[in-house]
């Protein structure tokens, strides 16, 4: 049992609510596993060394860098990617707020930022602008200059607190 497995390891996890059972090379990163083996191409690879945050997913409800996690480490985990945020064809209030406030340009960092903010607002439903900035400071956005992201998060927080209705297009 303690013989190292070089040819492959079985992993089972839930990805956006679906049970996934695969045989993977132990060196396969969770990000590659999600993108290639589960079709979750909303997981983006910006640096593959844990700095940019584009590959952020929720692992058992907490954010994780999927590039700094091996697929085998997610054994038994419940994974949510950006594909799992919307409710059917209904955008999540955060997605709606990012759309309204122009909180994205090229959109490459956006999946990671959305999931990071989802955790931030769960921990702190009414963050100050400084707390929002600190909360997303592990996610590099090369396009927006962050201003409209901060605006979107502030607005979405109010919606999620139930203080205002979501403004769908």
């Amino acid at each position: 049992m303690s013989t190292p497995t070089r040819t492959g390891t079985s992993v089972s996890m839930t990805v956006n609510g679906e049970q996934v059972d695969r045989h993977v090379d132990p060196r396969r990163t969770l990000s590659d596993f999600l993108r290639r083996d589960c079709g979750a191409t909303g997981v983006h690879l910006g640096c593959e060394h844990g700095v940019c945050g584009a590959c952020t997913v929720l692992l058992d409800g907490r954010t994780a860098r999927s590039c700094c996690t091996l697929a085998v480490q997610a054994q038994g985990a419940d994974i949510t990617t950006v594909e799992g945020m919307a409710d059917g064809a209904e955008l999540h209030p955060l997605q709606e707020a990012f759309w309204k406030h122009h909180g994205l340009q090229c959109g490459f960092c956006t999946p990671g930022i959305l999931l990071t903010v989802q955790e931030l607002l769960a921990d702190n439903p009414d963050p100050s602008d400084e707390e929002i900035r600190e909360g997303i400071s592990g996610n590099i956005c090369r396009c927006t200059g962050y201003q409209f992201i901060v605006d979107a998060v502030r607005d979405a927080a109010a919606v999620l607190r139930g203080e205002k209705a979501t403004e769908a297009e």
Partner: peptide, 18 residues
């Protein structure tokens, strides 16, 4: 609002590595 955003916000946009 931008027309391109819904697919970018939901992970449905296709980038070259996809």
């Amino acid at each position: 609002r931008r027309k391109e955003d819904p697919r970018l916000l939901t992970g449905r946009a296709q980038f070259v590595d996809d």
